[in-house]
Simulated scan of single mutants.
Amino acid sequence: MRALDGASANTLRAYVGDVSTFLAFQAGHRGGPMGLGEIACIAASDMRAWLAAERLRGAGARSVARRLSSVKAFVRWLSEREGFDPTAILSVRAPKFRKPLPRPLPQDAARAVLDNVGAQHPTPWIAIRDLAVVTLLYGCGLRISEGLGLTGADAPLADTLRIRGKGGKERLVPVLPAAREAVDRYIAVCPFDLDADGPLFRGARGGALNPGMIADVMARARMQLGLPSTATPHALRHSFATHLLEAGGDLRAIQELLGHASLSTTQAYTAVDTVHLMDVYTKAHPHGK
């Protein structure tokens, strides 16, 4: 997965944990260590016992589905190498769950967050840095890892950014003037040398900025503004997509900007937009009042 799919360290850790937990359960359930022969003999009843145990442990349907996906991927790979029939494992259906809709901020709330973030930290250059990061996430629809992954070589920002996203996939993202200006202000006041190979956004001591710092900034902003707990750094990316869609943006273009491999992932925003339109309709239509 690391070599062929460019899987992140976090993804690999999750898969290792899922498969290890599964094999440990089967060892206890079947009464012995899980070698290749034992894995090849796992039956549908063994899989049902594991799924039931996961639910008894308190795992939700979404978590169980992810763990089952990890196990299936491992067993599929192993069966191709070792030549056994994995049907009993691969035929198990994942529990159904409803994918949560993205939780974007309203446009006025997004503007309020930007104003709040820029006035938070007592150290001026850090306040300017925080505003630059948050403006970049919202203005370009970046994941926090993508924004903090920029280096000194990316400065000053050009009209477009080449972003390496999940799975090592690259995409070009236009940079709005407001985002470029916010980053330029940060570069001008940053007390550290922003060498080409080093991180663009620095912590208070000059190291790479920790994503948790931006999460804390957003947490303070939402508390002060009375926003819900879903107002996180990632919500800024959701807001970018939803506000583009509300303004008439093309779904395919938004897919490219977000770096989604599948259009179905991006289509979740159409549901959000429909909810918004129905709310406007209900409030505006004479029969809705």
Rank of each mutant, 00 (worst) to 15 (best):
R2F: 06
R2W: 03
A3D: 12
L4A: 12
L4P: 00
S8G: 00
S8T: 13
L12Q: 14
R13V: 13
D18N: 05
V19I: 15
S20A: 14
T21N: 13
F22T: 09
R30M: 11
R30F: 01
R30E: 02
L36Q: 11
G37H: 08
A44S: 11
R48W: 01
A49I: 10
A49M: 08
A52V: 14
R55H: 12
L56K: 13
L56T: 14
R57F: 05
R62G: 11
R62I: 08
R67V: 08
R67D: 07
S70W: 14
V71W: 05
F74D: 02
V75K: 04
V75T: 09
R76I: 00
S79G: 09
R81N: 03
D85F: 06
A88K: 01
V92N: 02
A94M: 02
K96G: 12
F97N: 13
R98W: 13
R103C: 01
L105E: 10
A109I: 01
A112F: 11
A112K: 04
L114P: 04
P122A: 06
P124Y: 12
R129M: 11
D130C: 06
V134W: 02
T135H: 03
L136W: 00
Y138R: 02
Y138M: 04
G139M: 01
G147S: 10
L150F: 10
L150R: 08
L150C: 09
G152I: 12
G152R: 06
A153N: 10
A155C: 11
L161A: 02
K166Q: 05
K166F: 03
G167Y: 08
L172Q: 11
V173Y: 07
V175G: 08
L176F: 00
A179F: 06
A179Q: 03
E181Y: 01
E181D: 10
A182S: 11
I187T: 15
F192W: 13
F192E: 14
D193C: 02
D197I: 05
G198L: 07
F201I: 07
R202C: 03
G203N: 09
G207K: 11
A208S: 13
G212V: 13
G212P: 00
I214G: 05
D216G: 01
A219S: 14
A221C: 12
M223D: 12
Q224R: 15
L225P: 02
P228L: 03
P228R: 09
S229P: 11
A231R: 02
T232N: 06
P233T: 00
L236F: 00
F240C: 01
T242L: 07
H243G: 03
L245G: 03
L245C: 05
E246G: 12
G248Y: 00
L251H: 07
R252S: 07
Q255G: 03
L258R: 06
H260P: 09
S262C: 04
T265E: 08
T266A: 07
A268I: 15
A268W: 14
V275K: 15
H276I: 07
H276L: 07
Y281E: 14
Y281A: 15
T282P: 00
K283E: 12
A284F: 01
P286K: 03
